[in-house]
Amino acid sequence: MTFESPIFELRQVSRTFGQVSALTDVSVMIHAQERVALLGPSGAGKSTLLNLLNGAIAPTAGEVRILGHEVRRLSPRQLRQVQRHIGRVYQQHHLVTNLSVIHNLNAGNLGRWPLWKAALSLVWPQEVATAAKALAQVGIPEKLYARTDRLSGGQQQRVALARVLVQDPIAILADEPIASVDPARSQELMNLLRDLCERTGKTLVVSLHDVAVARSHCDRILGLRQGRIAFDLPTAQVTDAHIRDLYVL
């Protein structure tokens, strides 16, 4: 799936929370099938940027376009239509832990399902094949009917990823997906994320702390510092000096 227009477009966007300004005058364009890493020290505005990209918050100034739609002009209903095409993986997973995995996966279908089907599925799971396939893709097919709180943290992260696969969005936003995982598993998880995006042609925006992972898994790096864009370059052109300046105290 290719779009003529960019997937995400930010024009001179600022966002303040009360007195604190989280982002100042940010302009970015992200096109289909790009893999973009957000780097920057804590508090640089990475999460705010991700929240703007899926319409979770609106900008204080400037213009945010998602799939060509200006966010502030959308009715809540239209916004939901747009948000269905943007998947998100949270650091804390945000799964419903006392439901079994199948229901957490089917939560990815809820944007399309009518209410009766959603309710029925809690009693009699619907579209099991899709869910099972997604779970197989993240490597834990045997956990389909396990209770989510019985899974390890890494497995829960995989369920969260599989939920996004069921949702089948155009773009995936991931907020520090490997911040609480050990190095071996974070490599594995990032490989999975990269391969899934490559295979299905999805756009990926991922905030990271690990510079090496950003270099190895993304083709573009966006450096954020104090709410402003420090650099926005293809990975090959990012030098150690860029990184040093980004994190200098």
Binding site: V82, I86, N106, L110, G111
Partner: peptide
């Protein structure tokens, strides 16, 4: 909600089971 799920379905899956 941020993934575009309508409110009632979101409550049914995201809040009530918990």
């Amino acid at each position: 909600g941020m993934a575009g799920v309508p409110p009632i379905q979101a409550l049914l899956y995201g809040l009530l089971p918990q």
